[in-house]
Computed example of a mutant assay.
Amino acid sequence: MHLTRFRLNTARPGARRLLASPQSLHAAVMASFPRLLPTDGTAQGPRVLWRLDHNARAEVLLYIVSPDRPDLTHLVEQAGWPAAHSSETPGWHTRPYAPFLDRLAQGDTFAFRLTANPVHHIRRKDGEPTKATAHLTPSHQMNWLLKPERQERAGFLINEKPHDQRLLPAGCTDKQHPHDGDRYTLTVRDERTLSFAKSRDTRPAGPKVKVVTVTYDGHLTVTDPHALRRTLTQGIGRAKAYGCGLMTLAPVPAG
């Protein structure tokens, strides 16, 4: 497994076109693997995951987790800094991921980031099949990730804040939603609604795909290293082809 980081040059038209189309960006990511077909990778094995981090207007980072080492030369030429490209400075950074994954141990604590597509299944009418519907409020988006069975399957537990660091004594703002407020070291931000035509449908008025994404930042504790390794290489939730599901870990900042 490999973890790759690539910075997009947002001043370039090619970068702006990719940022405007998750389908195009997904195709560009998949084109980075000469031996990997788009259909490779299943729910039972490693797959290609990617995520965009919009840290600032001029700093957009693309992260990729993949079984094979990628070649992002085409992305450098289209959306990077081609003049700075060389064999010594290829324009992206790739590191082996397996050593970090192998070191994961129960009780380890990390800061994490995840962009996901939090949905729930509802039935609008009796007898109608359920339909996946996006959570649209920060409260429900937060509760989606805090769901105990989701955390258990993923191999982690999101940390609670010490009581003396909570703004409210109970750590929540709504008794009906005990996960709200500042009880947990978890924030939800950067909600985006992606809307684009279905694949191979070029009609201007054709059906659109809509995906709501949000970014989670927080702290977690490893409860099941094997399950967490699966989470980090297979992703969480839906819409993985559109930049969702990739969780990354980092040391907890000091202090």
Rank of each mutant, 00 (worst) to 15 (best):
L3P: 03
F6L: 11
R7V: 07
N9V: 00
R12Y: 06
R12N: 10
A15P: 14
R17C: 02
A20G: 15
A27W: 02
S32C: 13
T39S: 08
D40S: 11
D40I: 00
G41V: 04
Q44Y: 06
Q44M: 06
R47F: 00
L49R: 06
W50H: 12
R51W: 04
R51A: 11
L52F: 06
D53T: 12
H54V: 02
N55F: 00
A56C: 00
E59L: 11
L62A: 07
V65R: 13
V65T: 12
P67W: 05
P67S: 01
R69G: 06
V76T: 01
E77W: 00
Q78G: 01
A83T: 09
H85S: 14
S87P: 02
H93S: 13
A98F: 01
D102W: 05
R103Q: 14
A105R: 15
A105V: 01
G107Y: 01
D108M: 15
F110N: 07
A111M: 00
L114I: 04
L114P: 09
A116T: 14
A116E: 07
H120L: 10
D126T: 05
D126V: 05
G127M: 07
E128V: 07
T133W: 05
T137S: 14
P138K: 08
H140P: 01
H140I: 09
Q141A: 13
N143D: 11
N143R: 10
N143Q: 14
L145W: 06
L146Q: 03
R150D: 08
R150I: 00
Q151C: 09
A154F: 04
A154T: 05
F156A: 03
L157N: 08
I158V: 12
I158C: 03
K161W: 04
P162I: 03
Q165E: 15
Q165F: 06
R166S: 07
L167T: 08
T173K: 10
H177N: 15
P178L: 01
G181P: 14
T185Q: 14
T185H: 11
L186S: 08
L194Q: 12
F196N: 09
K198A: 09
R200H: 10
R200K: 15
G206W: 03
G206T: 02
K208M: 15
V209A: 04
V211E: 02
V212A: 12
T213L: 09
T215Y: 01
G218Q: 01
H219G: 04
D224T: 09
H226C: 06
A227V: 10
A227F: 07
R229E: 07
R230F: 00
L232S: 08
L232E: 08
T233A: 12
G237S: 13
A239N: 09
K240H: 01
G243Y: 05
G243P: 15
G243L: 00
C244I: 10
M247W: 06
M247N: 11
L249C: 04
P253M: 07
A254R: 15
G255R: 14
